[in-house]
Write a protein that binds this DNA or RNA. Structure first.
Lengths: 191, 191
DNA sequence: CTAACCGGAATGAACGTTCATTCCGTTTTA
DNA sequence: TAAAACGGAATGAACGTTCATTCCGGTTAG
């Protein structure tokens, strides 16, 4: 029963929590209503139906994630520094919104997502695409297909965060730096 | 409607396919029955209920995956060669069973899994654990927590395979070798 | 200042639908 | 021909969604 100011916020916050924990399909509207402390019908005053609720939340948090990565991006610095910014921002987003990351991770190819939701997710990955494309030009990044480079970094990151979530790993500064270095080693051109 | 000899095989094969495509919760028993070419009741002659079916399939394929990784493991060779064996085996398993990998990936922390299913999945990851533990002793692998090393390699691999599945990447030999090298760079101790 | 009124937000019981599971008549096997 | 296997209609529970009703803060009338 997350805290929230407005009823809409309360519904979104409860739904995110339940979707992340149990998955979209295994979460019922009455569950969300109870957790949000509202009547089931109230949810339909804010969202047309369950799928719209799912898509709205997905897009809302993908947008927040994207903005976190873009915020303060050091366009004029080295690829390595840009990579550091992205990594740091991903960690920052996750630490404040770990349910959101988990929801996005487990639902980014869910059956209920609309074209618009997919597009917003692509927008998120495009930040990595731009980084790697420019890095390849500058001979700093391996000449792998960009999609593969993204998969390697994003996939690693998701699994590491899963460990954090289940309490198997605690990310203090030293470890964080080493994991960043490991991911950087995966994508950097080693001469 | 996958081909199969026995009805049980047909049910397992259809269920795997549907679970991988739509997810466990969004797959109905009548769907599985139709796809397998059997009556809905017949499924209950072979599996106590839907959850048992899900767990059975999960464990069956995790076991196949584990066996694939263990088969021909070069215990006496270098860490690098052992890593190569694991990587090659993961690719081999995926190319013959890509639905299985996808099902395992998307359901490895699903709400319906029993303790036994979780244990069988841990057994799979243990192969990587042993490799990295011995590699760290020999100063060939980064001194990161083993769980983190596993997450980095396994996470990358899953995302790369997702690209393959959606047709965004085709893994011919050259590319495969480069991706293996990238993942190796992520975990190897760079001096 | 109080009381009656108003309108839209909120509610939750009820509806139709869909699901997992059961049951039993039919078909296949030995 | 007896027994086992099978199919798919039937069942009841649970779901998403609706809508008649209640609630409540603000406005108007006296």
């Amino acid at each position: 029963m997350p805290t929230a100011v407005t009823k809409r916020d309360s519904i979104v916050s409860s739904a995110l929590s339940l979707f992340a924990d149990r998955g979209f399909d295994a979460t019922t509207i009455p569950m969300i209503a109870t957790s949000a402390g509202v009547g089931a019908g109230t949810i339909y005053r804010y969202f047309e139906n369950k799928e719209v609720l799912g898509n709205t939340i997905f897009q809302e948090y993908v947008k927040k994630f994207t903005e976190t990565l873009e915020d303060g991006f050091p366009s004029d610095e080295s690829i390595r520094n840009q990579f550091h910014h992205i990594f740091k921002s991903m960690v920052r987003f996750t630490s404040t919104q770990h349910q959101a990351l988990y929801f996005i991770k487990t639902h980014s190819s869910a059956h209920f997502l609309t074209e618009e939701s997919h597009a917003s997710f692509q927008g998120l990955l495009n930040i990595l695409k731009n980084l790697f494309d420019s890095g390849k030009k500058k001979k700093k990044i391996k000449m792998l297909p960009t999609s593969a480079l993204i998969a390697i970094v994003y996939g690693s990151f998701l699994e590491v965060q899963r460990l954090v979530q289940i309490g198997e790993l605690e990310l203090e500064a030293q470890l964080l730096a080493e994991i960043e270095e490991s991911m950087w080693d995966a994508v950097r051109l080693i001469v």
